[in-house]
Each structure stands twice: as structure tokens, then as C-alpha cells.
């Protein structure tokens, strides 16, 4: 295909995105604004539930070094194809809900999203606590801190970079997979991709892709900003001078956790 065709397509996508009519709801079509909010809602619920499960669990496993098999078990979930799981749960659950409600699609979607979000948060939280230098926890114990004080006063703040990197990769996965929820079919930005495909309306399909990518990037930047505010400079290594070594160490630790065997 000629590049002229590509340029033309990019122009069409741009005009699809900037047409204010596409952002408003009409009796026939749901607009971008509504779908965007739905997408954000699904994603927030999933990351929230996953965090509520995986964070305390990861902290507990890292602090006590007990039940580490749970981390390996959660990581094994990563080899499940998300779309297959989504279809399976939908055909299992959806028929039990009748009427105009979309609960029958929301429940399987949220289950899949939560299952996807748990492994990165759990394994990174665990790795974060596990990576805290033994000298630091030894010193904390030696000065008379109790288990809870060590966990919340030392281990948690020290593992925040890794925990954030877990939450960020979970959020990205959830936003990406929430797109596929439109395949089952549910609202969200994926609607434009699958509807565009169905109707051979490629500007709409590609416009949907642009929106999903933009949402993912925005969410990641937002989390990066929060991370900057929450993580101590002593750990992130953002001080005026001679801080390179610490920053490198943290980066290296993050990479290690991301590359954890699936």
C-alpha cells in the first residue's frame, strides 16, 4: 500500500477523533466520553480489588517468608490466555443474568481483570519486601522495633519502588485487557475497535486504538507522578549529587522483578 494511503488514513482517524459528535451519546450510539468513563471504571475496580488482595498478601509473604508458593502460583496464572479466560467465564456466567443489565458481562470481565492484575502486584510487593537489605531489617529489630513497626516503618517504604512498578504494570495490563471486554460484548473503548472492525469503519477502529493507548500512557504517567511524591528520595536516589549508585541499584532491582520467571 502506498504511503499516501497511510497519510489519508491518519487524517481520517484524526477527524474521527476530533469530531465532537463522536464524543456525545446519541439514541443509537454511545459516545467516546461514556465509553472512556466505563473503561476507567472497569479498570479502577479491577486494580482496586487486585490491590486489596495482592498488597497485604505480598507484604505478609515478604515479611514472614511464609507461603511463598502463592507467589509462584500467581505467576503461573500469567500463561493463561486472557481472552480465552474471558470468553470462558462469560459463557459460564452471562446466561445466569437476564434482562437489560450488563452484570452478566461485568462479573466475568472483572474476574479476568483481577486475575491479571494480581500476579504483578503480588510478586513485586513480595520481591520488594524480600529485597530490603538484611542489614536494614536486622538493625531495625536490633533497635527494638516490633514486627508491625518493621513492616510499615521500614519494609513497606523501602519496597515502594517495586510495589509501584507492580501496580503500574498491573494497571497497563488491566487497561489493555478491558479493551477485549468489548469482544464479549461490553462497553469501554474496545467497543470502537470491535465495532469498527465489524462495520469495516477503519478510522473508528484505529481511533479506538489511539484512545486506549492514550489512556494507558496517561494512567502510567499519573502513577509515575504519585510514585515520585510517595517514594522517599533516599530510595529513588533523586538527590542533588552522588546519588547515581542508589538509583542504579533500585533500577536493577526493578528489572529483576519484572523479569521474574513466569
Amino acid at each position: 500500500m502506498a504511503t499516501g494511503g497511510a497519510g489519508e488514513m491518519i487524517g481520517q482517524v484524526f477527524s474521527w477523533l476530533t469530531d465532537s459528535a463522536h464524543w456525545r451519546d446519541t439514541p443509537l450510539d454511545t459516545g467516546i466520553t461514556t465509553q472512556l468513563l466505563a473503561h476507567i471504571k472497569f479498570s479502577l475496580i479491577a486494580v482496586g480489588i487486585a490491590g486489596a488482595i495482592a498488597l497485604p498478601l505480598g507484604l505478609f509473604i515478604g515479611h514472614t517468608r511464609r507461603a511463598t508458593f502463592l507467589v509462584a502460583g500467581a505467576n503461573a496464572l500469567r500463561s493463561l490466555p486472557s481472552v480465552g479466560l474471558l470468553v470462558l467465564l462469560t459463557v459460564m456466567i452471562a446466561p445466569h443474568f437476564h434482562g437489560r443489565t450488563d452484570v452478566g458481562f461485568v462479573i466475568p470481565t472483572e474476574i479476568v481483570l483481577v486475575l491479571l492484575a494480581i500476579p504483578p502486584i503480588l510478586s513485586n510487593t513480595y520481591a520488594g519486601v524480600d529485597n530490603v537489605s538484611p542489614a536494614v531489617t536486622d538493625a531495625a529489630r536490633g533497635m527494638g522495633m516490633r514486627g508491625r513497626q518493621i513492616l510499615f516503618g521500614v519494609e513497606l517504604p523501602c519496597s515502594l519502588p517495586l510495589i509501584f512498578s507492580g501496580i503500574r504494570s498491573a494497571t497497563l495490563q488491566v487497561i489493555a485487557t478491558a479493551t477485549i471486554a468489548s469482544f464479549v460484548p461490553l462497553g469501554g473503548l474496545g467497543r470502537f475497535i470491535y465495532d469498527g472492525l465489524q462495520q469495516q469503519d477503519y478510522p473508528q477502529m484505529i481511533g479506538g486504538g489511539v484512545l486506549v493507548a492514550a489512556l494507558a500512557l496517561t494512567a502510567d504517567m499519573l502513577l509515575a507522578l504519585i510514585q515520585r511524591l510517595v517514594v522517599s528520595r533516599g530510595i529513588s536516589g533523586r538527590f542533588s549529587k552522588s546519588g547515581g549508585a542508589a538509583a542504579d541499584a533500585v533500577d536493577a532491582a526493578i528489572t529483576r522483578a519484572e523479569v521474574a520467571p513466569v
Binding site: 487497561i175 486504538g209 500512557l217
Partner: peptide, 17 residues
């Protein structure tokens, strides 16, 4: 950070496919 499905549909227009 770009979701896979978004990248799938973005590749053709960007590369002229």
C-alpha cells in the same frame, strides 16, 4: 505501555499497510 490490541490496529496505518 501501549495495549497490544491498540498496537495491532495502529501498525497498518503507521506503516502504510
Amino acid at each position: 505501555t501501549i495495549p497490544s490490541i491498540a498496537l495491532f490496529v495502529l501498525v497498518p496505518p503507521l506503516l502504510g499497510l
